[in-house]
């Protein structure tokens, strides 16, 4: 959107952490600059810098406890509520530091949507789940809300399955449907970034497949960051992949390259299943 200056920022020019920018986009949508994260004394993230391109899908992979979820949650400040959390460095969105004092966290989270590991619909109707984000923004125009609900459900490919019972309780849906409902709920407020924290880990293979297809389609309109411990999934859905290990960014770049010809032995070992 703005600031060519960001890509020329000296902090971001570390060669190994720079993904290929395609010609259309001259700046990063999201950017981490020398980020450290601590929980009390424990360092969960160690000096990570990377940039995420607009309308791309970026996968964070790595063994359990490597910090990939923590890293993801930096981008919508969901770590803020965790006791003992502290960080150094900057997280930029469209060139602006989202940890700046002037930033309204609630407003940020309306632009940066999140889908969680376990489907977590509210104990409300399907309709009210999707409408929730609009209602908390104070939108009263029922016609607009209805349009957004239907549109979002269509976008998340759930609409045809629930169109006749939008008043049904969300908890009566299957796990895969619930997760697509949660995606619809996130989409309803028109975010520009979608963070997905292992969105298919609690689902069966068929539901997972549907969600992967969905992620592919959403790329047109959203910048997507997905955490996964499923290597095949990262390979299938993402454009760029970051491999994290014990709080460090080991390697980051084009997914195809990472999976076929990684630069680091550790990446090679993890991807081929020799550890992790």
């Amino acid at each position: 959107m703005e600031s060519d200056s960001q890509s020329s920022n000296p902090k971001t020019t570390q060669v190994e952490t720079k993904p290929k920018l395609n010609s259309k986009h001259q700046s990063y949508k999201l950017q981490a600059q020398n980020v450290d994260v601590f929980y009390e004394d424990f360092q969960a993230i160690n000096n990570i810098s990377l940039g995420i391109v607009e309308n791309s899908i970026t996968a964070f992979i790595g063994p359990s406890g490597c910090g990939k979820s923590t890293f993801l949650r930096l981008f919508n400040r969901m770590n803020d509520y965790i006791d003992g959390f502290s960080m150094n460095g900057n997280i930029l969105m469209d060139g602006k530091d989202i940890y700046d004092e002037s930033v309204n966290v609630e407003e940020l989270r309306k632009i940066v949507g999140m889908v969680f590991q376990k489907p977590n619909p509210f104990p409300k109707s399907i309709y009210e789940n999707v409408a929730y984000g609009l209602r908390i923004q104070g939108i009263k125009d029922e016609e607009y809300i209805e349009n957004r609900v239907i549109e979002s459900l269509k976008q998340s490919t759930l609409y045809s399955e629930v169109e006749d019972n939008l008043d049904k309780m969300a908890l009566s849906l299957s796990g895969g449907q619930q997760q697509r409902l949660c995606i619809a709920r996130a989409l309803a407020v028109k975010p520009t970034v979608l963070l997905m924290d292992e969105p298919t880990s609690a689902l069966d293979p068929i539901s997972s497949g549907k969600i992967e297809d969905l992620i592919h389609e959403l790329k047109e309109d959203y910048t997507i960051v997905i955490v996964t411990h499923n290597m095949q999934q990262a390979g299938r859905v993402s454009d760029n992949t970051a491999f994290l290990y014990m709080g460090n960014l080991v390697e980051y770049g084009d997914t195809q390259k990472i999976f076929t010809n990684p630069e680091k032995d550790r990446t090679q070992n993890y991807i081929t299943g020799r550890f992790g």
Binding site: N76, M78, Y81, E106, E107, L108, R109, K110, G113, M114, F116, K118, N120, P121, F122, P123, Y132, G133, I136, Q137, C182, R185, A186, V189
Partner: peptide
């Protein structure tokens, strides 16, 4: 807690 997270994640106060 997942409901709390969902709500905060949507930008709720």
């Amino acid at each position: 807690d997942s409901l709390r997270q969902a709500s905060y994640g949507m930008g709720s106060t």
